[in-house]
Amino acid sequence: MHNTGKIIIGLLIFLVIAAFPIWYAVAGGKTGEMPVLEKAARGENCIIDSVLMKETHMFLLDDWRDEVVREDDRWYRSMTLDSTIEKSLTRTCLGCHASKANFCDRCHDYLAVVPYCWDCHVDPKEFE
């Protein structure tokens, strides 16, 4: 006895599961689309190098929140802008990037990131 039939079925199931990303991509057809971010409404530079910002903004925001709330330390010296700005998600970040939906959410949705910032912090656009 070899149970060839059962083994072939098992192998097929394995291959279908293993190839999930491929057929999911084919079925969804959205393979190559990168998230397109809305340009900042004003200014050319971000408060730090934008590549670095992309990778590490969560650390920055996390540090900011502790510094502002717990240490009453509210001002940030930006090297790239050569000026002092307020440590604020809604006022500073969303001051330049006009819309959460067209900026933050683009990448977050693309990567299934669900930050809990917005449980409390308000997207100003939503209430205009």
Binding site: F20, P21, T31, L111, V114
Partner: peptide, 27 residues
């Protein structure tokens, strides 16, 4: 699979929510 599939499949967000239920650290 959040990296390998667009949009991220249904189970990803559920797993992330459960796995990251406790708000420890950031990320």
């Amino acid at each position: 699979f959040r990296f390998f599939a667009e949009p991220a499949p249904f189970f990803v967000s559920g797993l992330q929510a459960l796995d990251g239920f406790f708000q420890i650290g950031l990320p």
